[in-house]
Design a protein around this nucleic acid. Structure first.
Lengths: 234, 234
DNA sequence: CAGCCTAACGGCACTCCGTGCCACTAGCAA
DNA sequence: TTGCTAGTGGCACGGAGTGCCGTTAGGCTG
């Protein structure tokens, strides 16, 4: 983006900060060019040139052209996996999936302006929409695997795991999309998280009691109590 | 696939049956080559040559290389949309989504052997898996749109529409995958449909009872938990 | 039957994505 | 100074997907 002399930009990527700077420049250039000219009419050469690096270097930072505009889902997936891996077995399932889901919001709330630009471009270009769908499905699969383990042995465990995982991920995306459509208000993602938590009342996490009208309320009480416990000083 | 003299295959696509024949040959060639050599090591040239047509003709039948192995999701989407469009307003939501979902099974049960081959290849190749995820998400969006209309005005309507749609699609895929993993038994997809119908008990199709006194208590407890959490930055 | 017309076909050339290879150079160590 | 390492950019290549055009089969018309 900013003009740099060949001398200074020659080995920007040598240090860790240098690599981060090059990466930021590439992301910014891609977002700007996709927004201005459209995704299809922007080549990788254009992005690389705008960021002041060679085309070959672009592919050392991103696996593909689409990657330049996508959030770092791999890192977020790893963090979600960590939440599942470190969770205590007696934590209520509702609480666990809410915690796991909220982890991902940080991907977007960290830089609301960039998220908005990404959102606009992603939802206009079919190729990027499909790619986003595929990324989201990776979360769904991760949730499904962990819930399947949790529900193992219970009646209809696999089906409930599949349905619960899909429901949580769908609620997450709804909350996120509404937050973005509202202009990504910078409240640390609080509105986003609160909307997301509404899914708790809709999950079939308890096999026997589902259908009982009081059940949903009981679940939400449980989840809230769990949050109270967590927010206590250690 | 089958050798044809240049004379007979020259204008096979002139008639409707001819086009269907060419398409079948291309699909069969793609499935066989992907299976034998792997997806990455098969070029469009290979597929076209194996089917006895030119490379340019391949792209007149399929938009992309991936399309040659994918089921006809566009047609299935149109049929599902038709189910929603022609449904009576007083049909229970559960019944409607089950009917809509079952429509899609025909895509696979019509030719179990081909479906099995597609399943194997699709689940081995990351690019095809992602493409399948994107296709599935189109169904989810279609269900979401229609359910959002159905739940319009009801409390938490959007959230329940998103969750219900995701749940139905997830259950559909679980039933389908189990059917394929079992070797695609040719019972007209009965086992598949029955498994799918199990989702009915897990759907939040009835709105939460906001008049319930316990609901207010849950809300106040949640709000208290949020305030406490907010006052203690992590 | 002869001639025309339409439409599918095959081939060519082109753009662009993504990758392997290699020479270059800045920074560092001996 | 002399290697040594690691990031870089250029080059060339294979493959996907597209625009264009000449060719040709099959149908329609006189």
């Amino acid at each position: 983006m900013t003009d740099a002399t060949p001398a200074t930009r020659a080995r920007r990527g040598s240090s860790a900060e240098g690599r981060a700077e090059v990466r930021r420049d590439l992301v910014a250039a891609a977002a700007r060019l996709f927004d201005e000219r459209g995704y299809e009419d922007t080549t990788v050469d254009d992005i690389a040139a705008a960021a002041g690096v060679g085309r070959r270097t672009f592919f050392r930072y991103f696996r593909s052209k689409e990657d330049a505009i996508s959030p770092d889902h791999e890192g977020a997936l790893a963090r979600v996996a960590e939440v599942f891996a470190t969770a205590h077995a007696d934590e209520p399932t509702t609480s666990l999936v809410l915690r796991a889901g909220e982890t991902v919001f940080e991907l977007y709330t960290a830089d609301p302006a960039l998220s908005l630009r990404r959102y606009r471009v992603t939802h206009e270009v079919a190729a990027l929409r499909d790619r986003e769908s595929a990324s989201v499905d990776h979360y769904r699969r991760l949730f499904t695997r962990n819930l399947r383990d949790r529900f193992a042995g219970e009646p209809d465990g696999d089906m409930r795991a599949a349905v619960t995982a899909a429901a949580v991920v769908a609620a997450h995306n709804l909350a996120l999309r509404e937050w973005l459509a509202a202009g990504a208000p910078d409240d640390g993602g609080r509105s986003c998280r609160e909307r997301f938590r509404g899914v708790a009342a809709l999950l079939p996490v308890e096999p026997a009691r589902h259908g009982d009208p009081l059940h949903a309320v009981a679940q939400r009480l449980e989840a809230a109590a769990d949050r109270l416990e967590r927010s206590r000083p250690a």
